[in-house]
Amino acid sequence: MTRTATSSRSRSPGRYVVLAAALCTVLFLTLPLLGLIGQLNWAELGRVLGSSVLHDALILSLLVSIGAVALSVLFGTPLAWLISRRARRTRGLLRLVVIIPMVMPPVVSGIALLSMLGRRAPLGRVLETLGIEVTSNIAGAIIAVTFVSLPFYVLAVEAGLTSLDRRLEDAAATLGASPMRTLRTVTLPGSRGAIMAGLALAWARAIGEFGATMTFNGNLQGRTQTMPLAILQTMQTDLDAANVLSVLLMGACVLILVCLRGRLFGDVS
């Protein structure tokens, strides 16, 4: 039964078209990266590895991206839940609020953030009188990166929550589970795949973000310079070193994803 279905499918010409298209996509995604690695000037590697720019930026990038993802989870999960539980019109409106920052050029996001939290902006001024500085430091970087990456997390999680079988929550409630227990033992485990996808998306977006960070928070080695900013700055004079930095950033990301793979992307069954 199954075998005939498979073989008849493999005979259809459409299958080759699909395979060819998929292969093109894989090449399109990997060739530029291989090119980057191919251009690597290995003599530079040792020098870059020992540079303080790399160490400072890598550590800051990790802290900032983890901070941004943590904030996304903390504030994004309740929003995702709310969106998934609203009537269609409210849901559409809330989704729009989440999508707009995604389509804004990151530089514009940075300007927008400045208009709220900048030193001369209303909220920023209040915070400054309270002695709280939210720009030109790590906090500013986290704010900028969260603004850009949180929507990815919210949309992914919201999609998961919306597709969750709500009757499972009903069943838990009839078994005496409080709303909190239902959330903890049904809603969240049931959206685990979506939450993991959201985490990965948000983190990927966070680690690569530079437009909003540069505009909102600035670029200063050791204080606000994340990896993408370090790469951009290095690129001004030293393409080889910038190339090495890019490959190192890529390598660090792959390493982290591989380490988390079992936990993050394993079959959620």
Binding site: T185, P189, G190
Partner: peptide, 12 residues
């Protein structure tokens, strides 16, 4: 206590 028609056991 309800036994639902589609069981609704928690798969995880």
């Amino acid at each position: 206590a309800v036994q639902f028609q589609s069981n609704l056991l928690l798969p995880w």
